[in-house]
Simulated scan of single mutants.
Amino acid sequence: MAAGGFCKLPNGRVVVALNLPGAGPDGIGGVRVLVHAHNRARALTRLRNLGLRAVYLRGNSAPPTPDEVTAVLHHPDGLIWRTSTDDAVGAPSGPPQLWQPIRALLRRRTPAPA
C-alpha cells in the first residue's frame, strides 16, 4: 500500500502520484512515482504490470503538484520516478532529485544473472 493521490486533467485523463516506501535504489529510502493514464485503475494496472504488485491508492492525501504533472506529461512514457525528498515529519530533507524513466528503477531492482 502506498500514500499518494491523483488529479484529473481537463481532457479527462489523470495523473496519479504514489509514494512507495523502501522501493528506492538498493532498497534504501522511498520513491515518488508518477503515472499518466486514462483513469486511476489503468494507472495502477500499468504499475502492477511492471512488477509493483502491492500498489493501491487509498484517498488523495498526496496529490501531484503542478510541477510533477508537467514533468509526467512531457515524458514520452508517462511513467517516471525520483527518490523521495521528504523525511518522516514531512519536511524536505534535501534538494529535489531529477525525474527518471521507470526503466531506471526497474533495472536497479532486478538481480544480476548468476
Rank of each mutant, 00 (worst) to 15 (best):
R42H: 13
I102D: 10
T65V: 03
T83V: 09
P25K: 04
A17M: 06
P76F: 12
D26H: 12
R82Q: 14
D86E: 12
L9Y: 11
T85A: 13
R13K: 08
G78E: 10
N49K: 07
L105D: 14
R48L: 00
D77M: 08
W81E: 14
W99I: 10
G27F: 04
A88C: 09
N49M: 08
P76V: 14
L20H: 12
M1L: 10
T65M: 09
I102T: 10
L50N: 01
G24S: 07
D87E: 02
H38C: 03
G22A: 05
V33L: 14
G90S: 06
L20Q: 12
G30Q: 05
A41M: 11
Q100G: 02
I102A: 13
V15D: 10
P66D: 13
L105Y: 03
P113E: 04
A88M: 08
S61Q: 13
L18I: 03
V16P: 00
R42Y: 07
H36C: 08
D26P: 00
V89D: 14
P95W: 01
G27R: 15
L57Y: 06
A23T: 01
A3P: 06
G78V: 06
H75Y: 10
L52M: 15
L79F: 13
K8A: 03
P101I: 06
A62Y: 07
S93M: 12
G30I: 09
L57C: 08
L105Q: 10
G24D: 02
F6N: 01
I28W: 06
A41N: 13
G59K: 14
G51K: 07
L18H: 05
L34C: 01
V15C: 09
G30R: 09
V15M: 03
A37Y: 03
L73P: 09
T70S: 13
D26Q: 11
Y56K: 15
A43I: 05
L18C: 06
L34Q: 05
G30L: 04
N49D: 11
P101T: 08
P21W: 01
D87W: 04
H74F: 10
I28H: 06
G78L: 09
H74N: 15
R107P: 00
T110A: 15
I80S: 14
A91K: 09
R42E: 13
D77H: 12
P113C: 08
A91Q: 09
P95Q: 08
H36G: 07
R42K: 13
R107A: 09
L79Q: 13
H36I: 02
G30D: 05
P76L: 14
